[in-house]
Design a protein around this nucleic acid. Structure first.
Length: 284
DNA sequence: AGATGATCCTGTATGC
DNA sequence: TGCATACAGGATCATC
């Protein structure tokens, strides 16, 4: 599922293909993925003739900005794939958007689970609002993270997954960052010592940078805009490794549910001291 | 206010 | 073998 490193990889690919190019035709648009005030055929009409100025990323959102100042907001959900290709006339199953460019190539959005979405962005709206800081920006300091976590009783994992707190993290990189910081995902966010916040801050940035260098993690569906896999899966510490030995201490990785998400951890490297007991455990 | 849980959707994996 | 069911998850909305 595309998270920050995957979306950033696609951003770069897409920028190469669309900046300076004009959208000549909207060859196919499935109105079911269009959100916001501008819908279906209206969106198609607005796209034609636009020239690409830049492609930006905010969290897991992409903004295909046009020279007019307007833009196309894209989110890939969990199974969405944005690819640059050549026109074929027939589109694979679950194709929701096909744009033909003045360069002769096409941009296609394919999303089997249809959790992805597109929306028209009219100035002055620059992008999605209400999101937390970009974890790779210089403004995202350990101090800032400390303030985000302070006083919260929710599990650290829940806070890190919340896009209003920090933008761009998803299930994979939250699990990986917590493993690298030696923190149990169910610990109350506000219970972290300053030293632990610092470790988490470093872990988040390190895992995102490494994944970015690997052009993302292909666990199942993810491909870049040219259909290529990301190779970070080989370097994952815990995600999807239930039952396999911890790369650090050899203890088998366990899988549990935290914040209603499948969660992977090493029980030895990420001690549960300080994890609140659940009601279920209390009642037994 | 803040947190939790249901909802959307279909491919894949498991169970009988 | 074939069918039925469970499960996965990002964001949004409803409900404690």
């Amino acid at each position: 599922m595309p998270e920050l490193p995957e979306v950033e990889t696609i951003r770069g690919d897409l920028a190469q293909a669309v900046v300076g190019r004009i959208i000549t035709t909207v060859e196919w648009l499935d109105a079911r993925i269009v959100r916001g005030d501008v819908r279906g055929t209206d969106l198609a009409a607005r796209l034609v003739g636009r020239q690409g100025a830049a492609v930006a990323r905010r969290g897991k959102f992409l903004v295909w900005r046009f020279t007019s100042g307007a833009g196309l907001l894209l989110h890939l959900g969990m199974s969405g794939r944005l690819t640059v290709g050549s026109p074929s006339g027939t589109w694979p199953r679950h194709t929701h958007l096909v744009l033909a460019l003045s360069s002769g190539t096409t941009v296609q959005l394919v999303d089997p689970r249809r959790f992805g979405r597109v929306a028209w962005l009219e100035p002055p709206a620059e992008g999605p609002g209400g999101m937390g800081p970009e974890p790779l920006s210089p403004r995202f300091t350990a101090e800032r993270l400390g303030k985000i976590l302070a006083g919260r009783r929710a599990p650290i994992k829940a806070v890190l997954l919340d896009q209003r707190r920090v933008a761009g993290l998803g299930n994979i990189y939250v699990d990986e960052a917590l493993f690298r910081a030696h923190l149990h995902p169910a610990r109350a966010a506000g219970s972290l010592a300053t030293r632990e916040v610092g470790a988490l801050h470093r872990a988040i940035r390190r895992v995102l940078r490494e994944a970015l260098a690997d052009r993302g993690t292909t666990f199942l569906d993810y491909r870049d805009a040219y259909g290529q896999v990301g190779v970070h899966a080989a370097r994952l510490g815990v995600y999807g490794r239930a039952g396999e030995p911890c790369r650090r201490c050899g203890t088998p990785i366990v899988r549990m549910v935290v914040a209603a998400r499948g969660t992977h951890l090493c029980a030895r490297c990420q001690p549960s001291a300080g994890v609140p007991e659940t009601d279920a455990e209390t009642n037994v």
